[in-house]
């Protein structure tokens, strides 16, 4: 059958034409086309990957931000609590210090009062004794006007000494 026997001329021309087509396209067309397609595919893949990463990091960032916020709030309350505690502590300290100070002042005052009292007492005692001596002197001077009395006294004193 004619259809099943390849015609030599057609085989020849087909070989030549296809070889030419192949060399033209392989030299001037396919490298550029396939390179562009490959590069674009690569770029798209990378872009998708980058987008995914960006989304991930964004979500991460959000999480981190949330965590920071929570932490900040926690810290804030803690700080406030601490401040409150410190305030009361300071007040307490101040109060106790004040009372100590006051006590000290009071003690000092007491001491000085005691001292002054003692001093006054001593002075008074001095004065009283001086006064007493004066009075006694005066009394003695009046009573010892006579010698008898004098000698009696001396005797009495001597008795006392000897008794001792």
């Amino acid at each position: 059958m004619e259809l099943f026997t390849p015609e030599f001329g057609l085989v020849f021309w087909m070989f030549v034409s296809f070889a030419i087509l192949f060399f033209i396209l392989a030299r001037f067309a396919w490298p550029y086309i396939l390179k562009s397609i490959d590069e674009r595919a690569k770029m798209i893949d990378e872009g998708v990957e980058k987008t995914r990463q960006a989304e991930e990091s964004l979500a991460n960032a959000k999480l981190i931000a949330e965590r920071y916020e929570k932490e900040a709030i926690a810290r804030q309350t803690e700080i406030l609590r601490e401040a409150d505690r410190m305030k009361t502590q300071i007040i307490e300290e101040a109060r106790s210090q004040a009372s100590v100070e006051a006590k000290k002042v009071m003690d000092a005052a007491q001491v000085s009062i005691e001292q002054m009292r003692k001093e006054a007492e001593a002075r008074m005692r001095d004065e009283v004794s001086t006064l007493a001596i004066d009075i006694a002197t005066k009394v003695v001077r009046q009573q010892m006007a006579d010698n008898e009395a004098q000698s009696r006294l001396v005797n009495t004193l001597l008795d006392e000494i000897s008794e001792n």
Partner: peptide, 10 residues
């Protein structure tokens, strides 16, 4: 036709 299509694309 084929070479025209692909040369223009290139």
């Amino acid at each position: 036709i084929v070479s025209w299509i692909f040369l223009s694309l290139a």
